[in-house]
Design a protein around this nucleic acid. Structure first.
Length: 646
DNA sequence: CTGGGCGAG
DNA sequence: TCTTCTCGCCCAG
């Protein structure tokens, strides 16, 4: 069909992307093998006696993952619980539907790595993966290197403190390399004349140090990849899992391009950034072309095959991938990937997420009645409010990570989400797997989510002590705060005033037979609060912030290197004040622009009266809801308000 | 700005 | 049986 009619442009010059070796990128995967093994590791760390027993993590009716004791007994991840229990009757099952504990561990590990960065380029991917751009640290340490005493080198982790760091043997790589010619006498040795080789060697020792600390200090093993961009670092890390690292060398022992050889062994689906949709489109094209690629089982087109396909080019790929809504420039992006080139930057660490969402699925028993929906929305909304308090607020005095105490300062919001979104999915009888392609025009009505959004009312920002749910004490005992509302109270109001109107927009038909397999609620569109002079004490809402003084606010985000590393030294456990007194010992890097750190918007609080935009007027929203309600059937409203018990 | 698609784990 | 529970980016309208 469409794709097969594409013809390579013959006369056009094909540009071959050139790798850029300026950067050094590290990639870590904690408790590798697969991401959800991380879940098992978290439970094992909470309760070490589990390590010797078969442990499974369940989510709904399936086993999300299991530890290696369980795997040795034949239990597999993604198995049905019933099946797993048949195979292994003494399987210990933990519920992994609530991700809180995994998030907490993930944050801790991420904070550790972040403390070692000099440039804030520390990007999280999922809960258990992190990229670091360590170009600057490596450049600095390369200058320190004494080529005549490589064996007794010292890696400096802090520019301002020559003692902070570790000793290493600079004549060798740490961990594994790729390629790794075991027959060569110079295996693992460094070509001192080659600057890139030296930088990769240094990075291998840094990665090794960080992985050792992750293991020793936190109890999490990890795999690591070391290369010159995110793509290569990530693929390299896959080579020696779960508890080792791989440095991708530019040249093999024979001087051939090792990166290209390395890339060519992978199937295109292994490339992060080439997902199912892109891979499918590429395969449709490639498998219809050369005879060699055609009649073979499985669509495992390799990178080498795609790259060497006659006429293949950035432009051809752009055509192949062109479809309504397609990302522009993805042809060039994929063409770059095929050559081991990835121009994307490691994003800077951000203190606030761009969205927070909570969802639950009801596959085995879809929700049918509005009363059920009401009940579930309440549960979800309560979790969402709790999460907002955890992830979008900060106590005035920041707790130290080691002591793990939540200090009793007046918490304040770091950001206000502007938008609330409700998504649902109905259970469809004939859910067609993505692999089956519609042959002509008629797109498969692939069951997917639909959503509606509305402004998030500001009463959700009424404060209360941090996470009363996790405290064993009655919530009144600590940090009494004015204008305190519990998560449940806020959730109830949110359901009736915002979520139900949204739900009715999504599902105008009344009565039962809703057949919902998924509910998701999400807050997004974050507006960062300038948190300088915190308006402590007030039940701060989006309108109550004082005007900001951006200078101090930003400098606070760039604490000095000593400050950050101090968090991880054994002897100094003193908490540092969050907004310490004027503290400009080392100026923040001038090249950092707050606008590039995230796509979050800074919130400038109006100094006087409220503005026409944000913050909104609750009453107006309430009115809107009332008006909408008016043309609704009252009986059905009563159904929505009703609480149904299981 | 909204609603959907895709890609990551 | 494409499963679970997310998060982020990008697009068109």
């Amino acid at each position: 069909m469409r794709t097969t009619s594409l013809t390579p442009k013959i006369a056009k010059q094909i540009k071959i992307p050139k790798r850029n070796d300026d950067r050094i990128i590290l990639h870590f995967v904690c408790s590798a093998f697969d991401y959800d093994c991380f879940y098992a590791s978290v439970f094992e760390n909470e309760n070490p006696s589990l390590k010797s027993q078969p442990l499974g993590i369940k989510q709904k009716s399936i086993l999300a993952t299991c530890n290696y004791v369980a795997r040795a007994r034949g239990v597999k991840k993604l198995m049905l619980i019933s099946e797993a229990q048949k195979i292994c009757p003494d399987l210990i099952l933990m519920n992994g539907e609530d991700l809180t504990r995994f998030r907490d561990v993930s944050k801790k590990l991420w904070a550790f790595l972040r403390a070692h960065s000099w440039n804030r380029r520390v990007e999280r991917l999922g809960l258990d993966e992190v990229f670091l751009d360590v170009t600057d640290i490596i450049a600095y340490n390369r200058e320190l290197l004494n080529v005549h005493a490589l064996g007794t080198s010292f890696f400096q982790l802090d520019r301002n403190d020559p003692v902070k760091g570790f000793a290493f043997d600079g004549s060798r790589f740490y961990g594994c390399t790729q390629p790794d010619d075991k027959l060569r006498a110079d295996r693992g040795l460094v070509d001192v004349e080659n600057p890139l080789c030296v930088r990769l060697m240094l990075a291998s020792h840094l990665a090794g140090y960080l992985r050792r600390k992750l293991d020793e200090d936190f109890g999490y093993t990890s795999s690591g990849g070391i290369s010159t961009n995110k793509l290569l670092a990530k693929l390299a890390g896959n080579v020696n899992k779960p508890n080792n690292q791989t440095t991708l060398l530019a040249k093999g022992g024979d001087g051939a391009d090792a990166v290209e050889a390395f890339m060519d062994t992978h199937s295109i689906r292994k490339v992060p950034g080439i997902g199912s949709r892109i891979a499918q489109l590429m395969e449709e094209y490639l498998l219809s072309r050369p005879a060699k690629l055609r009649d073979r089982e499985g669509n495992n087109v390799t990178i080498g095959e795609a790259r060497r396909c006659p006429g293949m080019s950035s432009d051809l790929l752009e055509q192949i991938l062109d479809r309504p809504g397609a990302e522009r420039g993805s042809g060039e992006k994929v063409w770059n990937f095929l050559h081991g080139v990835d121009l994307s930057e490691v994003k800077e660490a951000s203190d606030v997420p761009t969205q927070i969402s909570i969802e639950d699925t009801y596959m085995s028993r879809p929700l049918q009645t509005p009363a059920e929906v009401n009940q579930e929305l309440h549960t979800l909304a309560t979790s969402l409010i709790r999460r907002m308090r955890v992830d979008l607020t900060e106590a005035e005095i920041k707790p130290t990570v080691q002591s793990n105490t939540t200090s009793c300062g007046t918490p304040h919001w770091l950001a206000y989400p502007k938008t609330l979104r409700l998504s649902t999915r109905t259970k469809s009888k004939q859910s067609i797997p993505a692999s089956s392609t519609s042959t002509n025009g008629a797109e498969v009505p692939n069951f997917s989510r639909s959503s509606r959004s509305a402004p998030l009312p500001s009463f959700v920002f009424q404060f209360s002590p941090p996470s009363p749910s996790t405290s064993s004490l009655p919530s009144t005992s600590t940090c009494p705060s004015p204008a305190t509302l519990s998560c449940e109270e806020i959730a109830s109001r949110l359901v009736t005033e915002s979520l139900l109107p949204l739900f009715r927009r999504l599902h105008p038909s009344r009565g039962g037979g809703l057949n919902l397999a998924l509910l998701n609620i999400c807050v997004t569109n974050m507006v960062l609060v300038a948190r300088d002079e915190v308006n402590s004490g007030s039940g701060s809402g989006p309108g109550s912030g004082s005007s900001m003084a951006p200078g101090r606010d930003i400098s606070r985000m760039f604490r000095t290197q000593e400050d950050k590393l101090r968090e991880w030294t054994v002897y100094d456990t003193s908490p540092f004040p969050a907004s310490a007194a004027p503290h400009p010992p080392s100026a923040p890097p001038s090249d950092i622009d707050i606008n590039t750190t995230s796509n979050l918007i800074r919130y400038t609080a109006p100094t006087g009266e409220s503005t026409d935009g944000y913050p909104r007027d609750d009453e107006a929203i309430a009115d809107l809801v009332m008006m909408e309600d008016e043309d609704e059937d009252e009986e059905s409203d009563a159904q929505f308000q009703g609480r149904r018990l299981p």
